[in-house]
């Protein structure tokens, strides 16, 4: 078991969550994995049984019973689970911290509040307070990119002309890796960034020294 979990570790692993959204989704994944394994096994058993002597079942047993009934039951269950979790991880109006992630070929420019509440700009590193919900406004300069910190939450695309919102939250202070997930040309593989979650009482020096953030057209 520990070996298994160790295999799931890694700075970009969705299976080593460090925030509520990623945690919920990881749970969803494990649930779906168990269900899928069971279904695969079940189909295997049904197939194996077919190699015995012919067995007559009414057509509806297969098409309606298994085909409609069984599949609808399974699908409804996952769908409801998905909608429920989807609801939990959405941004909502709760006075969350707002930060900006602006993607360009090939790098990230961030804007976030410092200890004085001024919005300051950093390159390649995003600072957020730990233990508090943060809404990331994701925008793009040139082509489509995508903002993703796997240990905290899912991804959202950075699309020219649009402003997308993603809710993230880090449980504890620490650093997490982030990357561009949408293919964006030659520098796509190296378009990484770092996310630093700091304790609310210990804002990092880097923020105090950072320059004020530039204005964006859509602000």
């Amino acid at each position: 078991m520990t070996l298994l979990l160790a295999g799931c570790d890694g700075p970009l692993s969705t299976l080593a969550p460090a925030g509520p959204a990623a945690g919920d989704i990881a749970l969803l994944w494990w649930g779906m994995l168990i269900g899928s394994a069971a279904i695969t096994l079940l189909v295997g058993v049904l197939l194996a049984l077919s190699f015995g002597p012919p067995r007559v079942r009414p057509v509806r047993y297969w098409t309606h019973g298994w085909g409609l009934g069984f599949s609808l039951a399974v699908l409804t269950t996952v769908l409801v689970a998905g909608l429920w979790i989807g609801e939990r991880i959405l941004p909502r109006d709760d006075g969350a911290v707002e930060v900006r992630a602006h993607a360009y070929q090939w790098g990230w420019r961030f804007a976030q509040p410092n200890a004085e509440g001024e919005t300051v700009q950093t390159d390649g590193v995003l600072y957020i307070p730990a233990g508090r919900p943060v809404d990331v406004i994701v925008t793009a300069e040139d082509v489509i990119h995508a903002f993703w910190v796997p240990q905290l939450a899912g991804k959202v695309d950075a699309i020219p002309g649009r402003r997308n919102l993603l809710r993230i939250e880090a449980d504890r202070p620490g650093t997490h890796d982030g990357l561009c997930a949408e293919f964006c040309g030659l520098g796509h593989a190296t378009m990484r960034f770092e996310l630093v979650a700091y304790g609310v009482d210990a804002p990092p020096d880097a923020l105090a020294d950072a320059p004020a953030a530039e204005e964006y057209a859509d602000d």
Binding site: V43, R55, R57, W62, W66, G67, L68
Partner: peptide, 19 residues
Amino acid sequence: AVPTAVQVFAWIGTMWKGR
């Protein structure tokens, strides 16, 4: 996925029915 499942189970049922 439902119509796909209907087909998969119809095929399995065909295999049960035959040899």
